[in-house]
Write a protein that binds this DNA or RNA. Structure first.
Length: 559
RNA sequence: GCGGAUAUGGUGAAGUGGUAUCAUAGGAGGUUUCCAACCUUUUGUCGUGGGUUCAACUCCCGCUAUCCGCACCA
């Protein structure tokens, strides 16, 4: 059997198991289902939560990270400022002959140097004049251009007072717009990070490949704000022996430690490198196989225009190499964009090592005399006078930018001479953003954990989940439900359930082997069995999922 | 969005113009001294809307969803 066939059959069996055991299910199935929307079932919901929590804990442990939660409903203006309204729109036109839909800017690439930047009206004019032929059938018969936005539209508020909005396409913008509160919370000290786990929405034209491209998805993003003028001094020592697989822009795969990659300038920024290494650790923690993990650098033309370096973590699974994390150096792009749109200050203060002493010597107008004389022109005159050299002599004839000729007399101006000490400046922090596609990561966790082995000629399935993310921690079985074994097992189960953060499942039906099999299939790490000996000495057997080995443990030592 | 294929218990499959079979799974009871054993019993299905017909799961049309290409996209 060729391996493609083998993989397809494995994928089919795995999907069946995920459905049957309530891990991943098509959403709204009794109503016929909905494309690009999935449920995490009773087992999957728990798994997703554990992945999220592991992610949150991973970053909180850095010490300067805060978690926040912003709305998914987002006003139009926010996403216009961030560039999403422009970036996430495609201008489509349909061929009247073959009905093939094409992007207008792609059709007009020969007719314009940068059609991507044009507005709908400009594109329409250009399409009418350039008359490109259909790449599919070569005819020229285009429908009017329509804007197709990949964001879900909504209206915030009712009736005529409602204003336009979108469901957010990423969680990041809320963290940028809350920057003033974040800075205050961190008492004006950088660097710091903000994390958010939540839903994002993109109205994909064609969701495909199961959980890989969804219309509503779980994302987890970190925005790390830092001062670009100072060295971040990241400590890379814990990764000195960790070789990561890297694909630099336009080059072949190499294996390097993150320090080596930075020294060779393959990874161009130390903070990007630092988050690549942290991301590597996180992915291994939740059970991604390091042999099926690599980092790929964005090519220059693929990179968003604001990013100076961008790496994707790609994971190999049933659908090939899939981008699951994007780590981008976004510079000051986002904060600056929101500053421009709102006029608010989204900056941090940095103090100079040495205060700068500036001698100011020049002129300004004397409002009491110049005001009445120049009236409406006074503002322009002030500006002109303040740009004059300290040696200027008055009276003086000046031509204003507006063309007026005026005469400035000595009594209209006064000399300004003072010494200012500037101790620092306001700057826009730079941002490195690791953005995680949680659904894609969960898919690959399951894919890497799903293990089928032949047992007595049949497939036996074990989900080898990491203990960090296993949906159920313990299964408790009485060997037989009699002689008090059932009661003791139920007591143990209750105690476990009452323990913080522990999920236990009690199961007494079927043979003991069947129960182990059920537990293995959803990746329960430990099974506890109460047998006859338990009744005498209060010990139980604890079976390890991966090795099948059993240890006798006193029930007081279980947790 | 285009083209092709598909849609039957929870899961995987067979089948027919007269409402359906098998495997597996689930529940209850029994049996069993630890890895899907066995016995009894029970639960549950033709994606959706319309048409043809005395009668449609079966034939026809639309819709939705799934899979594979192309296109699109992070």
């Amino acid at each position: 059997m060729d391996s493609m066939q083998h993989d397809a059959e494995r994928l089919e069996r795995m999907s069946g198991m995920l459905k049957r055991r309530g891990v991943i299910l098509p959403a709204f199935e009794i109503h016929g289902g909905a494309k690009g929307l999935y449920d995490f079932g009773p087992v999957g919901g728990r798994l997703r939560n554990r992945v999220n929590q592991t992610w949150i804990n991973h970053w909180l442990s850095l010490g300067n990270i805060v978690e926040l939660s912003c709305p998914t409903v987002t006003p139009y203006a926010v996403l216009e400022a961030s560039g999403h309204v422009g970036e996430f729109s495609d201008f489509m036109t349909v061929c009247g002959q073959c009905e093939e839909a094409s992007r207008a800017d792609t059709l007009l690439e020969d007719a314009h140097s940068n059609p991507d930047a044009l507005t709908l009206g400009e594109l329409q004019d250009l399409l009418d004049s350039a008359q490109p032929c259909c790449p599919n059938c070569q005819t020229i018969d285009w429908s009017p251009i329509t804007a197709q936005n990949l964001m879900f539209n909504t209206t915030i508020g009712a009736g005529s007072s409602g204003r336009p909005g979108f469901l957010r396409p990423e969680t990041a913008q809320g963290m940028f717009t809350s920057f003033p509160a974040l800075l205050r919370h961190n008492r004006d000290r950088l660097p710091f990070g903000a994390i958010q786990v939540g839903k994002g929405y993109r109205n994909e034209i064609s969701p495909r490949q199961g959980m890989i491209r969804l219309r509503e998805f779980n994302m987890a993003e970190l925005e790390y704000f830092f001062n670009p003028h100072v060295d971040q001094n990241h400590d890379f020592s814990q990764w000195s022996n960790t070789k990561m697989e890297l694909i630099p822009d336009g080059q072949d795969t190499i294996k390097l430690s993150i320090t080596e990659a930075l020294e060779a300038n393959i990874v161009r920024h130390s903070t990007v490198g630092y988050f690549m290494a942290q991301t590597y650790d996180f992915l291994l923690k939740v059970g991604i196989d390091p042999e099926r993990l690599r980092f790929r650098q964005h090519e220059a033309d693929e990179m968003a225009h604001y990013a100076s370096d961008c790496w994707d973590a790609e994971i190999l699974g049933s659908y090939g190499w899939i981008e699951c994390v994007g780590i981008a150096h976004r510079g000051c792009y986002d904060l600056e964009a929101h500053e421009k749109a709102t006029g608010k200050t989204l900056r941090a203060r940095r103090e100079f090592e040495e205060p700068k002493v500036v001698e100011i010597d020049g002129w300004t107008i004397d409002g009491a005399t110049a005001g009445p004389v120049f009236r409406a022109l006074a503002g322009a005159v002030k500006k002109a006078v303040e740009s004059l050299d300290a040696q200027t002599a008055f009276p003086l004839s000046l031509t204003l930018p507006t063309g007026e000729e005026i005469e400035v007399k000595a009594e209209h101006v006064k000399r300004v001479q003072r010494t200012e000490t500037i101790t620092g400046e306001w700057y826009i922090p730079h941002v490195v953003e690791p953005a995680f596609g949680i659904d894609r990561i969960i898919w690959h966790i399951l894919d890497h954990a799903y293990d089928e082995r032949a047992k007595d000629g049949e497939n036996y399935t074990i989900l080898r989940l990491s203990e960090h993310v296993a949906p159920v921690d313990y299964c408790v079985f009485p060997l037989f439900e009699k002689d008090g074994m059932g009661q003791l097992a139920r007591d143990i189960h209750k105690t476990l359930c009452a323990s913080r953060g522990i999920v236990s499942v009690y199961d007494s039906s079927g043979s003991i082997g069947r129960r182990y099999a059920r537990a293995d299939e959803i990746g329960v790490p430990k099974c506890i069995t109460v047998d006859h000996q338990s009744l005498e000495d209060q010990t139980v057997t604890v079976r390890d999922r991966n090795s099948g080995e059993q240890k006798r443990v006193h029930i007081n030592d279980l947790v």
